[in-house]
Structure formats: C-alpha cells, structure tokens
Simulated assay, not measured.
Amino acid sequence: MASITRRRAVSRPASAEAEILAATRRILTEGASFTDLGVQQISTAAGVARSTFYAHFRDKTDLLLRLATEMLSTSFDVASSWEPTEGVDKAAEDFLRILGIYREHAGVLRAIGEVATYDQTVRDFWSQGLARFTERTIEALRVEQAAGRTPADIDLVSAARVIVVGGERAIFDHITSAPPADDATFARELARTWWYGVYRRPA
C-alpha cells in the first residue's frame, strides 16, 4: 500500500501542472487577453486550487514562458534538422511543419507579442530563443561558404539576422492574420526567400 501511495503523490503534481498548461493554452486559443487573464480564472479552468497554481508556477509570466518554451523547442527541432544540401523544396516542407506548430500554439504566440510590449523578462526570453535560430543559421551558412556553394562575401551575422528576425515577424503576422489554407504558399515563399536570397542559389 505504501508504494501505491507514493506513486500517486508523484503523479498528482505532474497532472496538475499539465492541466494548468493545457487550460491556459485553451483559454488563449479562444482569444482571451493574457494581460486580463487572472490566476483564479486559470485555476478554475484547470480544475485546481489557486494554491496549486503557485505550487508549480511563480506567477503568470513563468507560466507563459513555460508555454512558449515548448513552442520554441519544437519548432527549433524542425528548423535545425534542415540542411542546405536538402534543397529548397525540403525547406518549404519544414517551414510548413513549423507553421503547423505555431498554429497549434497561436494563442501563446499572440500572448508573447502582447506581453513583450511591456515586460522585459518576456522580451529577453523571446530574443534569446531567436538567438538559437540565428546561431544555427550562421553555422549552416559558414559550412556552405566553406564548400563554395554560398558566396564568401556574405556577412553571416547580418544575413542570419535578416532571415531569422525578419522571418519570425513574417510568421507572426501570417499566423495571426491569414487562414491555414494559405500556409503552404507562405511556407514555399519563405523557403525561396532563404534559398535565392541569403543562400544565393541560382534560379
């Protein structure tokens, strides 16, 4: 009996945490403003006590960053798996997968954009997340330069920032304003911008 009790004690907190994350994502997906969203509302939607919320998260910002971490980590795994040797069509496929991830977390994406306007912690977190994509792009461009497939005069840092930061803004705008039916076309054009622009591949 003692061992069963211990197993339950371990599983219940994990379940409560998952419920809080899922409930918040659901509320945000339905269009709620994160700024106006209260801890009590989140706790009620998750079916947990307010004290349980604070047992897992320091505050609402901590909760938002946890949600955003999941989104960024999943999209980074997809983005970093692409190699230039796989070509522009594979890049378009991967961008479409990334758009799908962002669609799934659209409410979280909007919340990040909302809170980042007034919260330095969230701004810094998002900037650091994009820095991972920038570093990965610089690495890929450096390899392409060494292989002679990308011109040697490209400034790696500037080029990477243009396509990562610019791409992030474009994706944010697309996800929050365009229908899912447009995702494939957008992914294709984003891939071609990378391929024919920064990577300087001939048409």
Rank of each mutant, 00 (worst) to 15 (best):
Y54A: 01
K60C: 06
S80H: 11
S43D: 12
S33W: 14
F34C: 00
T52K: 02
R26Q: 15
Y102T: 07
A46I: 02
E86G: 05
V78T: 14
I138S: 08
A45I: 04
S81I: 05
T35D: 06
V48A: 00
T35P: 02
E83M: 07
A32W: 01
A111F: 02
A23V: 13
Q120C: 03
S73R: 13
I138R: 14
V39F: 03
D94M: 05
E70G: 03
A32Q: 03
F57H: 03
A22F: 13
D59E: 10
F53W: 01
R136F: 07
T121E: 09
F34A: 00
L96G: 08
Y102G: 11
A79V: 05
A111G: 01
T74N: 07
Y54K: 06
V48F: 00
S75G: 00
R58Q: 10
T29E: 14
T85K: 13
M71S: 15
V108L: 03
R149G: 09
T121M: 01
R97M: 06
T69F: 05
V78R: 06
A140N: 13
D36G: 13
A55R: 06
D36E: 15
T137V: 11
T74A: 05
A23T: 02
I98K: 07
D124Q: 01
A92M: 05
T85L: 08
T29M: 08
T69A: 04
S43E: 10
I138P: 00
L64D: 03
T44W: 00
R50A: 09
R110D: 15
E86H: 12
T24K: 05
S81H: 11
V39A: 02
Q40I: 01
T61G: 05
Q120V: 14
G107E: 04
L63G: 01
T29P: 06
